[in-house]
Amino acid sequence: MIAFINVLVNGLLLGGIYAITAMGLSLQYGVARILNIAHGEFIMVGAFLTFVLHTKLGINPLFGLAVAGPALFVVGYLIQRILFKTLKDRTPTPAAFEGSSMLMAFGILFMVQSIAIFIWGTNVQGYSYLAYSVYLGDIRFSVNRLVILVISVLICLLFYLFLTRTRAGKAIRAASQDPDAAGLMGVDINKMLALCFAFGAMMAGFAGMLISMVFPIYTTMGMQYTIIAIIVVVLGGLGSIPGSLIGGFLLGIFGAIVSAKDPGLNMAAYYLLFMVLLLVKPSGLFGR
């Protein structure tokens, strides 16, 4: 029984990573209408930036928050301004934009990964950080996962507050709900879209930082996180920040339970859960 509770706790702690992985994508798709296949590559870059800082310069990985996040924010902002905005201006309909932006994201995926391979090679890398446990009674918490959980929940909360309480956040939400009306009300739509994409990339940077603390990292790992992110996003509802958070936890716990039964079916169960949910409630648990 204790073992099972420990498994559940582990899943819950892992859920934090899933949540923050998904949040960026949710924002990018929910507002900017870009299904960013290259999301995982941004995560990979975030992870490697943190890794380099930690192993080469000896800086605490948590400091990656201050480096990987902002760095990717800038990259994301530029990518949206230079590439996606041009694309949006050139495509006639929103539906066409969804298709071609995915294609473009695919191109970006190739470019980012290629550059990362030039710099960091294809080797598996990683570092060991806070890899020990604390006990609460008989229940065990891995310290690094605990840290991850706290950070991801904090980031979610902060971002949620930003979206609901600040002027810029409200503008972003307005832009996502009705771009035309928001534009008429004096919201600079293009700037908001770029901001959204940049925030999404920043989240990917944070996620990468957290992932590098618990998992081995390598330059070709992006796709697997993109797929997890897509699953969680749809689970929680496209564009919903709390949805991503709860979707992440659900996936973590669900994965843990399945792993306890038969780890060989772990991945299959993710997809099954997700496909069934799509059929029952396509808009996700918290979708509009």
Partner: peptide, 20 residues
Amino acid sequence: SRSIPQGVQDVSALIEEAKA
């Protein structure tokens, strides 16, 4: 003797079992 799929994220359930 259990199989894990490629790209699995969390193997702690197995380790928990071995530990138990």
